[in-house]
Nucleic acid binder design. Structure first.
Length: 424
RNA sequence: GGAGAGGUGGCCGAGUGGCUUAAGGCGCACGCUUGGAAAGCGUGUUUACCUGAGAGGGUAACCCGGGUUCGAAUCCCGGUCUCUCCA
C-alpha cells in the first residue's frame, strides 16, 4: 500500500497520479493525514504515561529489595491512574491505526509519470508491434476446432470431471504444454532467475502481501475449512518468500521464477471471452519476479519486457506490447506492460503476459526492506511478469502455425516438445 | 487423530517475576597491535514508532493473541508452528 511517509511528503503528486486512474483520492488522503497527526500525538501521550509508570515500577522494585514494604505500597497506589489512562490511550491508538490501515488499503498504487491517463483498454498505448502480424490466413480455423480435430485438448471431458474451464490436455497436446513450460523455464534460467516450485495454496497473510486480499478476494478459490486460498498466480508465493525480510543491498536484484498452475474463479466472465482456451479456471504459467533497488527498478522492468519479447519471437507469434493506461492497470501496479498475441482465427488480440513494477506498494505490505549503504532501511521495489501464460499461447500457436495438414512447431520450441509437427 | 517436548537477537545458547533488550559464545564491522597475516586486545553490532538541527532521549517488541501483577522472556488461558512417540 502507499506509505504514510510518501503521503506526508508528496500528497499532491500522489493525488494527481491517482487522477490518471480516474480516482479522486484527495478526501481520503487528507483524512489519512489527519489521523496520522492524531496518531502521533496520541503516541506521544501514551509514551509519556508509560515512561512515568515504568519509573514508578522500577522504584517499587528497588524499595522491595531494600525491604521497604510500606513505601512500596504507597507508590503502588499512585500507579492506578496511569494504568487506566494508558489503557484508554492504547485503545485510541489501535482504533486510529485500524481506521488508517483500512482506508489506506482501499487506495490503489499511484501510477508512474509515464503512464497515460485513461479509463478503458482503448486508452492503452501501443509501444511495440512485431512485424509478422500481416501474414494472416483468411481461412484460419479457431484453436478449439484444431484442438479437437487433432485430439490435443478435451474441454468436455474437463467439464464432466470438474467443470467448465478445466480442460484435459492429451497426447501431443500435453507434450506441447510440457514443452512450453520447459522452454520458458530454460529461458528464465538463462536470464538468471532462480527456479522455485512453490506451494499452490497460500494463507491470508500472503494474499494481503501481494495485494490479492482484501481487494480481489472473490477471484481466488477459498478453502474455508483450512483458511487457505488457491494461488491465482505464482507471483503470490514467490514474492511472499520475502515477506518480513531484510535483504542485503548487495544481493539486489533478487530474481526468481517458477512454473505453477494458476486458479481463478473468473466470476462474471461469459461469451466469446471464455470460448476454448481464452479464459480458464485453471491454467499453467511461468512467472518471473524481481526484488529490486528503487534506483534501477524501471531499467529492470524494461529488461523483463525484453525477456518476454524474446520468448514470443522464439515462438514466431505476431504480438504487440501495450503500456496500460491508469484506468486499465491493476490495483497494485505503478506501471504495467501487457503483451498480446494475435489470434488469427478469432481476429483479436489475446493477452498472454502482464509485466509490472509495483515500486514499494507490495513491499510496504510485505515489509520487505534492505539496508542502504548509509545505514537506513528502505523498502525494495517488486516487479513481476508472466513469461508466459500458456493457454492463449497454445491458442495462438495452433491458429498462427496451422497449415492444410496440421500444426508446425517453431524450431526454437521443437526440441522441448520432441516433435516439430502435429498432424491429424 | 492421540501423548509429550519445545519456539529467546544474524546464528548457537543462558535466563522461572524487578538491577534483562536480554549473560556467554560464534559471526560480522571498525580500531589498536604486526614487515604482512593469524592470534590477541578494544569498541560496536535488532526492528518499528515518537521526539530532537544533531548528539541524544522516550515507547514497544523474547512465535501470535488475551489474562494475572505496581512490574512478565519468566506465571495463567487460547492459538500456531517445529520435533519425538503412538494410531
Amino acid at each position: 500500500m502507499l506509505t504514510i511517509q510518501s503521503l506526508r511528503e508528496e500528497k499532491e503528486q500522489i493525488a494527481n497520479a491517482l487522477d490518471k486512474r480516474h480516482i479522486d483520492a484527495r478526501k481520503d488522503l487528507d483524512q489519512i493525514l489527519q489521523w496520522d497527526t492524531e496518531r502521533r500525538s496520541t503516541q506521544a501521550q501514551l509514551d509519556d504515561i508509560l515512561a512515568q509508570s515504568n519509573a514508578l515500577s522500577r522504584e517499587i522494585g528497588t524499595l522491595m529489595r531494600e525491604g521497604k514494604r510500606e513505601e512500596a505500597e504507597a507508590i503502588k497506589a499512585k500507579t492506578a491512574s496511569f494504568k487506566e489512562e494508558s489503557a484508554l490511550l492504547k485503545e485510541k491508538m489501535q482504533a486510529i491505526e485500524k481506521q488508517m490501515h483500512d482506508l489506506l488499503c482501499t487506495i490503489p498504487n499511484a501510477p508512474h509519470d509515464d503512464v497515460a491517463s485513461g479509463r478503458h483498454a482503448e486508452d492503452n498505448v501501443e509501444t511495440f508491434r512485431s512485424g509478422s502480424a500481416e501474414t494472416l490466413d483468411r481461412h484460419a480455423k479457431p484453436h478449439w476446432e484444431l484442438a479437437e480435430s487433432l485430439d490435443l485438448i478435451d474441454f468436455e471431458l474437463g467439464a464432466k470431471v470438474t467443470g467448465a474451464g478445466f480442460p484435459f490436455y492429451k497426447g501431443k497436446g500435453a507434450k506441447l504444454q510440457r514443452g512450453l513450460i520447459q522452454f520458458f523455464l530454460q529461458k528464465a534460467d538463462e536470464a538468471g532467475y532462480t527456479e522455485y516450485i512453490p506451494p499452490l495454496m497460500i494463507n491470508a497473510e500472503s494474499g494481503f502481501g501481494t495485494g490479492q486480499l482484501p481487494d480481489k478476494e472473490g477471484q481466488m478459490y477459498h478453502m474455508q475449512e483450512d483458511e487457505l486460498y488457491m494461488i491465482p498466480t505464482a507471483e503470490v508465493p514467490l514474492t511472499n518468500i520475502y515477506r518480513d525480510a531484510m535483504v542485503r543491498e548487495g544481493d539486489l536484484p533478487i530474481k526468481l521464477c517458477g512454473y505453477t498452475p494458476c486458479f481463478r474463479r473468473e466470476a462474471g466472465s461469459y461469451g466469446k471471452d471464455v470460448r476454448g482456451l481464452n479464459r480458464l479456471h485453471q491454467f499453467d504459467k511461468v512467472e518471473i519476479v524481481q526484488l529490486a533497488h528503487p534506483d534501477v527498478s524501471y531499467a529492470l522492468l524494461d529488461q523483463m519486457v525484453e525477456h518476454v519479447k524474446g520468448l514470443l519471437e522464439g515462438l514466431e507469434l505476431p504480438y504487440r506490447v501495450l503500456r496500460l493506461c491508469g484506468g486499465d492497470m491493476g490495483f497494485t501496479s505503478a506501471m504495467t506492460y501487457d503483451f498480446e498475441v494475435w489470434s488469427a482465427a478469432q481476429e483479436r488480440w489475446l493477452e498472454v503476459s502482464s509485466v509490472s513494477n509495483f515500486e514499494t506498494y507490495q513491499a510496504s505490505r510485505l515489509k520487505c526492506r534492505y539496508k542502504g549503504s548509509e545505514g537506513k532501511t528502505h523498502l525494495v521495489h517488486t516487479l513481476n511478469g508472466s513469461a508466459l501464460a500458456l493457454p492463449r499461447i497454445v491458442a495462438a500457436l495452433l491458429e498462427n502455425h496451422q497449415d492444410e495438414k496440421g500444426i508446425h512447431i517453431p524450431s526454437a520450441l521443437a526440441p522441448f516438445c520432441g516433435f516439430d509437427r502435429i498432424d491429424a
